[in-house]
C-alpha cells in the first residue's frame, strides 16, 4: 500500500466507493457501516482530500446525459515542445485529461464541451496555436466506464 495512506484509509475508501447514501446524514450512515464515528469519517475524508488522495467527493456526472460532447485527441509533438504544448491545452477548463504517452502520437487529451460547435472551435484554436493537427477520436460505443478500484 502506498505511503500516502493511513492503515485505516483503504476501508474508508472502499466504503465511500460502495454506496454513498443520499440521506440527511450520509457520513453517519457510512460511519455506522464501518463502526466508526461520524466525526472520524468526516475528518479523515478532509485529510484525504487535502493530500489529494480524494480529488473530490460528490455527484459523479455523466456529461453526455446533459448534452455535453467530448473527444479524445492526440498530437505528435516534438519532445522539446511537449511542456509548452501541454500548457496551451491545459488552459482550457474543459480539458480533463492530458498525458504524455509512450510511442506516437505522444500527447493525449480529452476535452468535454457543452456543444459540438464549442468543441470544434476550441480544438481548432489549439491546433492553430501550436501549429499541429490533432487526431480526433470520439466514442462510438461505451462498453464500460469507471468502476470501483479494488483498494
Amino acid at each position: 500500500m502506498s505511503s500516502e495512506l493511513d492503515p485505516k484509509d483503504p476501508e474508508l475508501l472502499r466504503a465511500l466507493q460502495e454506496d454513498f447514501p443520499v440521506t440527511e446524514r450520509p457520513f453517519e450512515e457510512i460511519a455506522e457501516r464501518m463502526g466508526w464515528t461520524e466525526e472520524e469519517v468526516i475528518s479523515r475524508i478532509r485529510i484525504l482530500t487535502d493530500s489529494g488522495v480524494i480529488r473530490k467527493l460528490g455527484a459523479v456526472l455523466n456529461p453526455r446525459k446533459m448534452g455535453y460532447v467530448s473527444v479524445l485527441a492526440a498530437l505528435d509533438v516534438p519532445e522539446e515542445s511537449l511542456d509548452g504544448t501541454a500548457s496551451v491545452i491545459n488552459e482550457y477548463s474543459s480539458v480533463t485529461h492530458n498525458y504524455q504517452r509512450e510511442g506516437r502520437p505522444n500527447l493525449w487529451f480529452t476535452m468535454t464541451e457543452p456543444d459540438q460547435a464549442t468543441l470544434e472551435k476550441h480544438l481548432a484554436e489549439i491546433e492553430e496555436n501550436i501549429g499541429l493537427s490533432a487526431i480526433k477520436m470520439p466514442v462510438t460505443k461505451m462498453f464500460k466506464i469507471g468502476v470501483k478500484l479494488d483498494i
Binding site: 502506498s2 500516502e4 475508501l13 465511500l16 466507493q17 467527493l57 446525459k65 478500484l149
Partner: peptide, 22 residues
C-alpha cells in the same frame, strides 16, 4: 435521486487519485 434515476448523476462517491492509492 431523480438525476440518479435518469443517469445524469452516475453515482455519488469519491474521485480517487489512482496513483496515490498505489
Amino acid at each position: 435521486n431523480d438525476l440518479l434515476d435518469r443517469g445524469v448523476i452516475r453515482r455519488f462517491g469519491p474521485s480517487i487519485s489512482h496513483r496515490k492509492v498505489g
